[in-house]
Each structure stands twice: as C-alpha cells, then as structure tokens.
Design a protein around this nucleic acid. Structure first.
Lengths: 146, 146
DNA sequence: TTCCTTGCAAACGATTTGCATTGGA
DNA sequence: TCCAATGCAAATCGTTTGCAAGGAA
C-alpha cells in the first residue's frame, strides 16, 4: 500500500489518539481531498456508493472531526458539510451558491489574507470576544446556477 | 395600536405580497428586533412562551423569510437562526461563539466595509462566481465562555 | 483475547405538512 | 363569505445510538 503525504499526516494524527486509520476512513479522507469544497454525508455517500452505510459514514466523520482531521461547515439548512482541516488543506474561503447550496473553496494570496486579518482585528479590537478563526463566506450564484 | 417605524416597514412589505401582519408575526419581528443576534425557533419559543406552538413559529419564520423580512443563518449543526434582513437591520457581521453557539452582531464602519468589499472583489474577480452578498463570520469565545 | 470498528435498525431532534378550525377584511 | 392564518398531530429529514457481529493487533 502506497501512502501519500496526506495519508501519512492523517495516519500520524490518528495514531496519537489510538484510533485506527481503516479503509473506510481512508476512503473518506481521499474523497474529501479530491473535492473542491466541503461535502455533506449524503454527497459523500453518492461518491462512495451504497456499499458504505450512512451510519458508518457519520461515525467516520465524527471520528475524523474529533481528531481535528476534518472541519465542519454549516451553510445550508440542516446539513453539515466537512472538509479537511486547515493544517491539511491550507487556509481558504468559501463561495456559497444560494441556488444549489454547493460550496467551493477559494484561495487568497498572503497579501489579501493580511488585509483581511487586519479587518478582523479592527472589528474585534474593542470587544471582549476572543477570536480563534475567521471565515469569509461569499454568497452568490455558481457557474451552473446563473 | 401604535406602530413603530419597523412595524410600518414590515407591514408595508408584507402588504405587497398580500400577506397579513398578524399579532403572532408582529411578536416574532419584535423579538428579533430586540435580539442582539440571530435567534433559532427554539430560542424564540423561549422568549415568546409556550402559548405559541412551534409549528406556527416555524410557519411564521418561513413566511417572513419568503417576504425578505428575515434572513436565515446556519452557524451551528442542525439549527437555523433568523435575524432581520439587512434593509431593516443594517449590514453587519457576526461573532460566533464556538463554545455555546450564540451569535452576536458586530457593526463595521463604512471605511472597514469598503476595505472588505475590495477584498471580496479581489477574490471573486477571476472566477465565474457572481457575488450577491458576503458574510464575515468571526469564530472564537464570547464573554461568557472564556 | 481484547478492543476498536462496523452494520443494521431503532431512536432523536429540528423542521415540515395534512387537515380541520378560526379569524379578518 | 372567503381565503389566509392557526393549532394539533403525524410525517420527514438529517443525524445519532444501542447492540451484536467482524477484524486487527
């Protein structure tokens, strides 16, 4: 079995928690690494086929989230989508289609990210809120839904 | 019955759709106008008391959203929170507490908002995505949860 | 053998809907 | 009077969990 860099990172992290990196979990990580944005359990189920029961999928997602391999996102009603955590996937933002609900990743340059961070600091500066992360969600219509 | 400015705005808007501004709907609008951030059906139910059935509350929220009086937000798993639409409430951003899930509004200055808009344009500039709105969600710990 | 993992089915929580009743213009 | 609005109960949908079977170390 050939292990990619990603596989090694995930495997190492799971090992710290005494959690096995099983075939089913590897499939989910692979599917998410190939996706261009967060994916819901239902969407992943479509990718993986009906041989993977939804309950196992949900359990896999929960395990990977607890191990900080995946990050949850909530951009459409009642659905949680997951993507690889930032330390695996890099910092980025989201284009959320208000028609079909699909979410697409967008990269920013370091320069843009610095300007954004400055804005976040301006906003939280005088409040008693302690920032841990920020997410710029851009809503609109994706290519397919215009 | 004394009507506030907000009441007149909402009443006028609903009138355009041949939708009545009933006591139950007015209560929800009032409760949301007094909140400092988006509220879920369950949270509103706590405010309004058990005399308002949840099903009516959900129907009210759906009607007000369809009329563009309310905007939905999805920041915690499985829960939709609503707030007054921007044309009633003003443009603002959110501080999302990762511990308790509560969401608090934050205002920005026009100057900060211009800088943010520039960033959004930089990001969407080369994509085929058509922006309609942006939302800067700042995650962290609220005053109570630190 | 010892635990972790998986599958299936039942249980859950948030939200929606069918249907009969109520209420306003 | 007539149709929108409401209440109640049942139904849905995404997600979670109990329990027994399968699998790796």
């Amino acid at each position: 079995m050939v292990k990619s860099t990603l596989d090694k990172q995930v495997s190492g992290r799971l090992g710290q928690d005494d959690v096995r990196y099983t075939a089913g979990r590897r499939e989910v990580v692979l599917a998410l690494s190939e996706a261009d944005g967060p994916r819901s359990a239902a969407e992943l189920s479509d990718d993986l086929g009906p041989s993977v029961p939804l309950s196992s999928l949900y359990r896999t997602l929960a395990v990977l989230e607890a191990a900080d391999i995946l990050t949850p996102h909530f951009s459409s009603p009642g659905v949680t989508r997951y993507e690889l955590a930032e330390w695996l996937n890099g910092h980025h933002h989201h284009l959320v289609c208000v028609v079909c609900g699909q979410v697409e990743d967008v990269e920013t340059t370091d320069e843009v990210e610095l300007r954004l961070q400055a804005i976040v600091s301006d906003i939280t500066g005088r409040s008693s809120f302690v920032e841990s992360n920020h997410a710029l969600e851009i809503e609109g219509k994706c290519r397919n839904c215009q």
